[in-house]
Design a protein around this nucleic acid. Structure first.
Length: 867
RNA sequence: GGGCGGUUAGCUCAGUUGGUAGAGCACCGGCUUUACACGCCGGCUGUCACAGGUUCGAGUCCUGUACCGCCCACCA
């Protein structure tokens, strides 16, 4: 049996095939036929499982999504045609700050986790002036309501693009299942000692008032200034001068530090100096991180000005004098006997009172005035530009605030994680370096708690002591079977709701999980971990994680970590890393730059196949320019496919097997293309497959079709026509299937004209199948050369006509073909095809080293031209 | 400061194990050809970033440099 050779199916070709309306027609049919439903009866070995990236629904889809999701769909369609049951779910990321902010504004509400759930709650019709407080469960309900609308729009776009997602398998990163998986995994990590709670200096965003993780940082260049400050040496007239960009932190200074080998400061190590204004005695210490080249070579250690301060503080065993409040202002401090020590607590209090309550940048300005007045500022501040750490979604520099947070262990897992990174197949391979880079640069365990409201809560309560204070050591956990729970409204076993927040009772952990703490479990959420063991065993570990390179350090890293802990395996075999879409100025396309194009409009203008064609030109990992020109080319290719198919199917009788040299040559080339393409797609080289298939297709249209046109109409008898038809049909069938992952709509349309079922569930072509249309069914190198030779001669004849500016239908009186003896031996096989295609009256052959064709056209005005 | 990628025609990019530089777009010229004018045919376009090295031979391998982009970093 050979695909394409059975003509038992009726052929129905439209007179004027067109792309318009194909998306609507076929997406509807695919849905009705449940074409992309996952077949969960298949064993793991027959399944291809995809860990689809859940797009953020509170944002809007942009052309970058269309780009990368197309890549995944190409692989999914290929694997499906290879006979795999493709597990291709879609997730919606509605967890986290973006949704929180959107729901607040849209409904005019504010989450207050201390409120009880109100089942009768209805949001105000219009947001009022003052946000209405609602309980966390009510808030989450509102989120679900709002995101449901977004999800509909997203799904419509994805369907229009032709993603072969199984739409019966969707999940949301805040839905019940995601919460349950997140909480269950957290509790298991806790039991295994892989998660823990600790009060420690933490990166802190003063606007969002939450802890953030290392992975969420970004550097931004900011103006700043070096201030040279004088520290007195008690008992001497001497001073030590330090440089700092943050003079407002002088009250938080706990030591000075210089490099142990720095001869200038060596004599000072072990001695004490006094901070200006506050006259607090602090030691001078040595540490290798101090850079003699920077500033004066000696630095002030504060609790805490930056991450280096934390390192120094920890490694030198220094005390804490914290002055930054969670809201980014300097908190009140009492100096003197009841408070902080000072050689002159009255003066210290007087100075500090001028700073307390001020925001950091205002405190800095005030501090400079105070230092200038006291004479402790040496010279004037020297403006610089320096990199400052920001929360990636934040507007003001991060501070470091000591607080109680949940962590997941990463630091002691580094060797194992590096090993997992090497196990993973990366596409492209060099992306592994980014992973290694990140793992090697980890500075601390992963802080997963956030002081926000909308997210997955920690399933933990604490006992309250008789005095009403929280006993963080006395933790209460729900049984796994109760999950998910919300400790702000649910009650721990053995307690009643009346005992909430009263002495001797309990209180819920107020925090929620970092959004990555949930999305790092997408394989478990989508695959039904601990809920549907049968499904999970068929899809996990998954085959591929498609994602962009900028979130290797977050999403990919965290997913590998969680799977490593929970299953002792990689979560997937392959990581397919997509690049970004760049605008024509080579900048990343983004909303802030105002260069975002609406994806739906693109699909409507260029057709989904056209846009997919452009997307498929981006290799894994490669940033790709936004190029409507490529979309137009793709659209043209799809149209060409319709028209060429129409021609092939216009007169398919008689049919038989390919016996003529050029026919066998065509199928030999195609068989090789099929074999290469299969291998390429197995290795995520979809770009090359499209290029080569397209190139073959154009050769097929321009040369092969022209050569056999007359013959297939019967000019050379029915046996020769049957050979041409056999090749035409076999080639069309295989080409349609090669194109199907890229141009799902045009190929499906053509397939429906003459083949039963869908091209997308047809068997992927094989080399043997294509050669099976030949008699005998083997490669024919001579036939390949015959086709090439005939194409070259035909090209020379066209060129002559073009140079003479004559119509292509101009007859050729005589063509003198000079070629090698070997090529000339092919002439009898191709001569009649050539005569018909080039309208050649006479062909003369001469032996020669190089191919050359002399063409003598019918003179203009000759009556023969009109024959 | 460390790491990763890139630099080939005006533009977007291919160039497998080293063997005479390719495609598409754009541009120019031609063609009403019964699959397609949403088309067809033909043409023009290169110091393969730069400098060395290996080799009979380098866009391809090695070393260095420059520029562009990205990731990371303990940025006083």
């Amino acid at each position: 049996m050979h695909e394409g050779l059975e003509l038992d199916h009726p052929i129905a070709v439209p007179d004027k095939p067109a792309l318009e309306g194909l998306e609507e027609k076929w997406t509807a049919r695919w849905e009705t036929d449940r074409l992309y439903r996952f077949d969960r009866t298949k064993p793991r070995s027959d399944v291809f499982a995809i860990d689809t990236p859940p797009p953020t629904v509170s944002g809007s889809l942009h052309v970058g999504h269309v780009f990368s999701y197309t890549h995944t769909d190409i692989i999914a369609r290929f694997q499906r045609m290879r006979g795999k049951a493709v597990f291709y779910p879609m997730g919606w990321d509605d967890n986290g700050l973006p949704t929180e902010r959107r729901v607040q504004n849209y409904f005019g509400v504010r989450c207050d986790p201390s409120l009880p759930f109100d089942p009768a709650f209805r949001p105000p019709d219009k947001p009022g002036k003052h946000p209405r407080p609602v309980s966390r469960p009510n808030f989450i309900e509102l989120c679900a309501r709002l995101t449901a609308e977004d999800e509909k729009a997203f799904e419509h776009l994805w369907r229009h693009l032709g993603l072969s997602v199984d739409w019966s398998m969707t999940y949301a990163t805040i839905d019940r299942r995601a919460q349950r998986v997140s909480q269950l995994s957290f509790l298991r990590l806790l039991r295994a000692g892989l998660a823990y709670q600790l009060e420690a200096p933490t990166l802190w965003d003063i606007d969002f008032r939450t802890a953030v993780a290392q992975a969420e940082l970004e550097d931004r260049e900011q103006p700043g200034a070096y201030h040279r400050i004088r520290f007195a040496r008690p008992g001497t007239d001497g001073h030590v001068e330090i440089d700092t960009t943050r003079p407002e932190l002088i009250p938080a200074c706990v030591a000075l530090v210089a490099h142990p080998d720095d001869e200038r400061y060596r004599p000072l190590f072990g001695s004490e100096v006094e901070t200006p204004l506050f006259r607090v005695r602090v030691p001078v210490r040595a540490h290798a991180l101090a850079d003699p080249e920077k500033g004066s070579g000696v630095a002030m250690i504060c609790t805490f000005g930056d991450v280096t301060d934390v390192v120094w503080w920890r490694e030198l065993g220094l005390p804490v004098r914290a002055i930054i409040a969670p809201n980014g202002t300097l908190r009140p401090v009492t100096w003197g006997e009841a408070g902080w020590e000072s050689a002159d607590s009255t003066a210290a209090q007087q100075a500090y009172d001028q700073l307390a309550g001020l925001a950091v940048h205002k405190a800095r300005a005030r501090m400079v005035e105070l230092l200038r007045a006291s004479g402790d500022l040496v010279g004037e501040p020297r403006p610089i530009t320096h990199a400052v750490k920001f929360y990636e979604k934040g507007d003001r520099p991060l501070e470091i605030v000591t607080s109680r947070q949940w962590f997941i262990r990463t630091m002691d897992q580094r060797p194992a994680l590096l090993e997992r990174g090497r196990e993973l197949q990366w596409h492209p391979p060099y992306m592994q370096a980014r992973f290694e880079n990140w793992v090697n640069g980890l500075a601390g365990d992963w802080c997963i708690s956030r002081q926000r409201f909308f997210g997955v809560p920690f399933p933990v309560w604490y006992r309250l002591r008789a005095d009403g204070t929280v006993d963080y050591e006395a933790r209460l956990f729900p049984d796994d079977s109760r999950l998910p729970v919300d400790p702000s409204t649910d009650v721990p076993d053995g307690y009643g709701s009346g005992q909430r927040d009263v002495p001797g009772g309990f209180t819920g952990d107020p925090d929620i999980m970092d959004t990555w703490a949930t999305s790092s479990l997408t394989p478990q959420i989508a695959g039904g971990w601990e809920e549907d063991a049968d499904l999970f065993s068929r899809v996990f570990p998954m085959d591929v994680r498609p994602q962009a390179h900028d979130i290797i350090r977050t999403w990919l890293f965290a997913t590998v970590l969680r799977s490593h802990f929970e299953h002792g395996t990689l979560p997937w075999k392959n990581a397919a890393i997509s690049g970004w879409v760049l605008d024509p100025d080579r900048k990343k396309m983004s909303k802030s730059k105002g260069n975002v194009v609406t994806p739906l409009a693109l699909l409507e203008e260029h057709g989904s196949d056209g846009v997919r064609y452009w997307a498929a030109s981006g290799r894994p990992g490669a940033d790709t320019a936004f190029d409507t020109g490529q979309m137009r080319v793709g659209r043209r290719l799809a149209i060409k496919l319709l028209n060429a198919s129409r021609f092939v199917l216009s007169r398919p009788e008689p049919h038989g097997t390919a016996t003529a040299a050029v026919d066998r040559g065509l199928l030999t080339q195609l068989a090789r293309l099929v074999a290469e393409s299969t291998d390429d797609l197995e290795h995520y080289n979809y770009t090359r497959v499209l290029e080569r298939t397209e190139s073959f297709f154009w050769g097929f249209c321009d040369d092969y079709l022209e050569l056999v046109k007359g013959r297939r109409y019967g000019d050379q008898g029915s046996e020769r026509a049957a050979s041409a038809n056999a090749a035409l049909l076999a080639a069309l069938s295989a080409m349609l299937r090669l194109f199907a992952p890229f141009l799902p709509f045009a190929t499906e349309e053509v397939w429906s004209w003459w083949r039963p079922g869908s091209v997308h569930t047809a068997r992927w072509p094989t080399r043997e199948e294509v050669l099976g249309a030949c008699s005998p069914p083997v490669e024919d190198e001579r036939g390949v050369r015959a086709l090439e030779f005939a194409s070259q001669v035909l090209g020379a004849i066209r060129k002559k006509k073009s140079e003479e500016q004559r119509p292509l239908k101009t007859p050729v009186l005589r063509a003198t073909v000079r070629a090698t003896v070997e090529d000339l031996a092919l002439l009898p096989d191709v001569e009649r095809d050539l005569r018909a295609a080039g309208l050649i009256h006479q062909i003369d052959a001469l032996a020669s080293e190089a191919l050359q064709v002399d063409v003598e056209l019918v003179p203009p005005d000759n009556a023969a031209e009109r024959l």
